[in-house]
Amino acid sequence: MTSIISAKGLTKRYGRMVAVDHIDLDIPPGRIVGLIGPNGAGKTSALKAILGLATFDGELQVLGKNPSRDRAALMEDVCFIADVAVLPRWIRVWQLIDVTEQIHAGFSRDKCMEYLAHTKITPDHKVKQLSKGMVPQLHLALVMAIDARLLVLDEPTLGLDILYRKQFYTSLLNDYFDEQRTILITTHQVEEVEHILTDLIFIQDGKIALEATMDEVEQRYVELLVKPEMAERARSLKPLYERELFGRHIFLYLNADREQLSSMGELHTPSVADLFVATMKGGKS
């Protein structure tokens, strides 16, 4: 299978500042990839390059096309939701559906109406009349009705309440995702996406800090929960990261001997959020 996104030495500079620093990427079809990094790590710059919204240096192919040259052609097979509220505020829902249908060959009006039937949105609503949670619902209904091969979501649920967020990811997973499609998500709300991701990419200071499938993460990383008296011994085994919670010490190890560890305390698979914190702190020292 050919890759959906492949980058070699992808670099984005703003004047002297390097936002994305020689990144290599290879994302095959049928994955849900989480691109996770702190603010200013270069996530948005990388996404902009992938979506043809900005120029870049280095090699980058999305679905075999050069995004900055063939953006219009690329958008036949790529959809993106860049932020929560980018739908034009003056437009009515039916106008939005009309214009998308005319411009997008792969758009199915029936599917879109079907998704909208589950919401309180009606065709006569103006976008500015919709509540904050309904706008992403509408955007998602539009995007899910497009037969695209790559869907890029940049902070799609920022500022929404937990009900809308859960529903957003549930419909994405149940009604949209399949082996042909690839989804690339950036978000700060790591806890909510970690169960749906198949691949993880951490990005820090414009460089990739970690790139692995979720299975690999599970195999490589382990978290150990020990009582304070065992802390010294656990520390001697060179953990990546240490923290304290309710008087217990928690250590994160990479490629450690699990049998040796399990004799000291409880073993867990680390959450993506903990792994993220550990990786970012580790990278700094």
């Binding site: 979506l51 043809g52 919204l53 953006r71 219009a72 052609a73 690329l74 958008m75 036949e76 790529v78 959809c79 993106f80 939701i81 860049a82 932020d83 509220a85 980018v86 739908l87 034009p88 505020r89 214009v99 998308t100 411009i103 997008h104 060959a105 955007h139």
Partner: peptide, 20 residues
């Protein structure tokens, strides 16, 4: 205006070239 209200990010997600 599209840039001001950021809806340019929606319009650019449609397969219509800038020239068009």
């Amino acid at each position: 205006d599209d840039r001001k209200d950021r809806s340019i990010l929606f319009w650019k997600s449609l397969p219509a070239s800038d020239t068009l």
